[in-house]
Nucleic acid binder design. Structure first.
Lengths: 139, 139
DNA sequence: TAGTATATGCAATTTAATTGCATATACTAT
DNA sequence: ATAGTATATGCAATTAAATTGCATATACTA
């Protein structure tokens, strides 16, 4: 995925700071979602913990990042597809949560339509598969 | 749902204590999953916080309760269907997470089959719909 | 380039989760 | 029924995670 942090910030009316750019770069490195603890470890020296919290929150609110909760309740982040906006996330692909290495993959598989019972208005649906990922299978 | 805490404990080789019974009773009260903070509030006077943590963990490990993470990373608990075991949870129904009241419903809708990419072995799949629930719609 | 609004980093606080240990409780075998 | 044993509980202390307030630094505007 080609990512240009500077133009992403512009598009969303966010000020261009080196911390914000750095966070986007780091997350864009991998197709796998990165967990907040891992991000902290990687950026801990460069960016204050509190600042990281705030950046991640605004990115998630603006629709720049997806926040995916794993089975431990830990937040993981991945870049949104370009169609996401502040009003509406289009995170309608299946996530795969490896129960061995705990990595979260964004699969190229669409979330199937689900019929809701009367009275329930679903805005988004998320599907997460739990199991053993590609890499852990080959070990 | 009719629940008999005592026989559930027996079935899973767990000692019969009043705290364990109490937790099951409380969770069985509602078809809606209850959040850990809410449980703490309700039981705080009767059961020590640490004990509650431990009880919830063993229930989840034994397949007595499902742990459903909500969008905030908060754990919510609901009684498993009888087919759940220590080895395998059969939580293959769709959850509905209300973004207004934050309640989590277990819907009577099966999780659709999803084709995994080569190399990924899914053991379970969870689907959660986010939106406005029945009750919040009528308010 | 000066002025203004906002982002950052630090300190302090609040909240959540975990661990160790002494006591209490449930089950087993007699 | 009861003594013995294993395990659950509650409390205290610790560790970790998240939030808040505020002074300073930085980016954008005119």
């Amino acid at each position: 995925m080609k990512i240009d942090p500077v133009s992403i910030l512009k598009e969303h009316d966010l000020k261009h700071t080196k911390q914000r750019v750095r966070v986007l770069e780091e997350i864009a490195l991998d197709t796998v979602a990165i967990s907040q603890p891992d991000l902290e470890k990687k950026l801990g020296k460069e960016i204050d913990r509190v600042t990281l919290y705030r950046i991640l929150n605004t990115y998630q609110e603006k629709g720049i990042l997806h926040r995916i909760m794993d089975m431990n309740g830990t937040a993981n982040y991945a870049i949104c597809s370009s169609s996401c906006s502040e009003d509406h996330h289009h995170d309608e692909h299946v996530h795969f949560n490896c129960t061995k290495c705990f990595k979260i993959y964004c699969l190229e598989v669409e979330v199937p339509r689900i019929k809701m019972p009367k009275g329930f208005l679903a805005k988004t649906v998320s599907s997460t598969a739990y199991g053993i990922c590609e890499k852990c299978n080959n070990i």
